[in-house]
Computed example of a mutant assay.
Amino acid sequence: MIKFLNKYKAFIIGPSIVLPLFYFLDYIGFIILPEDKTYEIVIYTLIWGLIIALPIYYYQYLKTKKKTVIRVISLIILFVMTLVIDSMMNFPDNPITFILLMVFWLGIAYLLVPGFMKKYWKLIAVFYIPLLAYFIYLRLFSGDLEAYLIIKEDFPFIVFFLPIPILFLVWIFEQWKWIQNLKAEKSKTELSLLRTQINPHFFFNTLNNLYALTVKNSDQAPEVILKLSDMMRYTIYEGEKDLVKLQDEIDYLKNYIELHKIRYRKSVDIKFDHDIDNSITVAPLLYIILLENAFKHGVETLAENAFIHIDLFEKDNFIYFVIENNFDPNEVKASNGIGLKNLKRRLSLLYENKHELRIESAGNNHKTILKISKHA
């Protein structure tokens, strides 16, 4: 708590300076504080306290920004001149004071958010010019002072500063939009990174197997080269797309299965049923991780009677991918599950609340069910 207060002490110092100063200026008659409107004093104290606190807080930064400091000093001088002119003219609610105040507040806004002010200067003009014109009309052309004060009772001139909160809301919207864009860019970057993590060990293992086949002059070598080429092309080019046809994913999985059949010398019962509209589009490279796990943690742990059964189907506007395999509990090694974490993260980014991943184990059987929406 002490560390926090020490870091932000400038925002305590600011109001602490302003409030006594207000009452001193009121005491000598330089300004008049409203006696029955405490909330106005609080608001003014917070605003001016913030204005004083910011230069203190950013002192080290401001030392490197001389132009900014000059602008701040110019605005302070402008405000002081406004107060002096207002007190010397002895003219209640005089237009010169309001114009100078308007310039001052717009100058503060420009100093804080120059890009925003440049972008929305037309919107600012649409708000301020009619209000200023209406005020000048009321004050100078609607009748005598008494008539103006009567109108002011029904139309409190605090409304003159109405554009400030409105423009502040526009600025908040701009920040929200910027944050959303930033999140989208972060998600795209993260997805790109996750895609690069997909099955590199598989390609290395397959290349090693290919090397062994070429040494033996095996007739399977050309087939392996072709299938591996297709898979690498799909991973590199199709994997970068947002959506691909389900048929392309099915072909990719089939190539993976065929390459593993060539790799293993033992008999493995592999079934892949896909009763589904193959033109449906899905995010690429979602199912390969589950298939990899079935081989790595299932087939590779068993000397015989290994199986992998896959069922891909649609039901109630969802696509189901169900994969079941057996394994040897005594041979299963502890794993950090990077592939599965990768998949879960991609699903949360791509399908958010429109997916379900369920993992079930019973005895020496392992079953994973992935359900994703067709209309994500």
Results as ranks from 00 to 15, higher is better:
F313H: 14
R195S: 08
F321I: 11
L162I: 15
D277M: 05
I262P: 01
L290P: 06
S361M: 08
A133P: 01
F104V: 08
V18W: 00
F4I: 10
V224F: 04
E331K: 12
P20D: 01
H260F: 10
L50M: 07
L207H: 01
N278A: 15
Y57V: 08
F91T: 10
I13E: 01
T68P: 00
L54E: 15
K177H: 10
V72E: 09
D242L: 04
M81P: 02
L340D: 12
L228P: 02
I164M: 11
F104P: 03
F173I: 10
K374S: 14
H297K: 10
I280F: 12
L138Q: 15
F135D: 02
A221V: 06
Y44R: 13
F295H: 03
Y8P: 02
S218Y: 03
I369N: 09
N293C: 05
I166G: 02
L191A: 07
L226F: 11
A221R: 05
F141T: 12
K188A: 14
L5H: 06
R139V: 12
F104R: 13
D144C: 07
L290D: 03
S187W: 11
L100R: 12
K333Y: 08
M1N: 12
K63S: 02
E40H: 13
I124S: 11
L285C: 02
V215D: 03
I166Q: 00
I43M: 12
D269E: 11
Y252W: 11
V244A: 14
D316P: 00
P114Y: 03
D219Y: 05
L291I: 09
A53Y: 05
V224H: 03
F127G: 05
